[in-house]
Design a protein around this nucleic acid. Sequence first.
RNA 1: GACCCCAUCGUCUAGUCAGGUCUAGGACGCCACCCUUUCAAGGUGGAAACACGGGUUCGAAUCCCGUUGGGGUCGCCA
Length: 470
Amino acid sequence: MTVVTRFAPSPTGFLHIGGARTALFNWLYARHCSGQFRLRIEDTDRARSTQEAKDAILDGLKWLELAWDGEVVYQSAHADRHAELAHRLLAEGKAYHCYCTPEELAEMRAQARAEGRPALYDGRWRDRDPADAPKDVRPVVRLKAPQSGETVIADAVQGEVRVPNAQLDDMILLRADGTPTYMLSVVVDDHDMAVSHVIRGDDHLTNAFRQLQLFRALDWPEPTFAHIPLIHGPDGAKLSKRHGALGVDAYRDMGFLPEAVRNYLLRLGWSHGDDEVIGTEQAIEWFDLPGINKGAARFDMAKLANLNAHYLREADPDRLVTLIAPALETARGSALTTEHRQRVRAGLSDLLQRAKTLVELADMASFYVLERPLPMDDKAATLLDPENRERLGRLVRDLDGLAAWEHDALETVVRTFADHEALKLGKVAQPLRAALTGRTTSPGIFEVMTVLGRDETLARLRDAAADAAG
RNA sequence: GACCCCAUCGUCUAGUCAGGUCUAGGACGCCACCCUUUCAAGGUGGAAACACGGGUUCGAAUCCCGUUGGGGUCGCCA
């Protein structure tokens, strides 16, 4: 049997982090089984579905590099097919018309609740004579679900879960206006798309029982269900916008790499022994449904950042330069020259030991491409007092005479200079750093001088020294 | 309220199904020290958990029951 999984979001908002994980698990499982990963947009609620949301979902999946197989299926396109099956059920006596008004239903629920009973439809039109039908009410179509016994799901993640059928009422298949409901559409589409494994958030677990009843009424083979736990916020409550229910685009903007997000999401609720860093190929090989935990996991930005730092260091340097180039151009206010790119490229490995995100990387790299005179942050400006500026002026003369502009030679000159001034190296290195980078923290100062090159280094130092004179 | 699910360091988790090898392992974060021109990175070390109560058993983190806590679902939404 070919494994077919699907990711089926409703286009009512962005692709949030929980949805991204659901998509990842479906993608991974399909790849692991050499099967198919399909994408279906559940846009049957036309009032709430938007084009922006559809674009955001597609863009999010592309950014995460979770490619789907075949064409995107839009559920709304199959409404006729869905309705047709409801009519088939009606003709077979497996469904019936219900003439309850919304008000009547609300009253029914309120009363059931008040009496401590489950808030369900009581099936009052199930076996009633159609001749009783009121002329002024358009009926909905409900499934004639089993009333006794229990429905059992052998869930690949949750295990065997059973619910008494008395807890499940006759769900609506077709609304009063004749359009299909989600419950009907999902089952028909999953069948028509030959979906073999339904992997989704466990907020759908209770829906699964009703869907199973529908599959049976239709005499269709049942898919395997796998309900994965939801992701919670750091405080244990449902993930909200406040702590991470952001669109995946927000994570991209925060400077995370898609491979890092994938690895993080994979480890959230799934594990393979003590392995933490799991690349995509490895993930495809190892991923399986039984490894998924049943409990909800909390989202932890610090761990994502740690993983991101790891993938940043493993990433192709040229790719990183390309990724941070826009931010660097914004910082300097104009396009980057080839020399700028080369400088950033040369300084990258050192920068990478300090950055956890692309945003941090771009920020730390900015001094390599900024135009003179270099802007100084407060601490750097304070450090460059008249005494230190004059000292830098003297250092420029020693540096200017240097034959080879290399790391070790530069270090020798600066150390010797510090000795002559009877200072510890740090007393010279810090002002030097301020003059060269505009900040008090940066990669190793000799590394900076090497990457900046003789001309730019001396020019920046003269800028600082000149201020002492003026 | 009804139904369903879950419960190991602050967090993600290994171990649970097939009880002993667990004075409970790893990772992130945190703390200390080392390294050091700053900040990091790196190295070394450390604090930190089986929710609680009953059983079953020679023996329970592991099995059973209960309690508590958390989550999910109860729409002519998806």
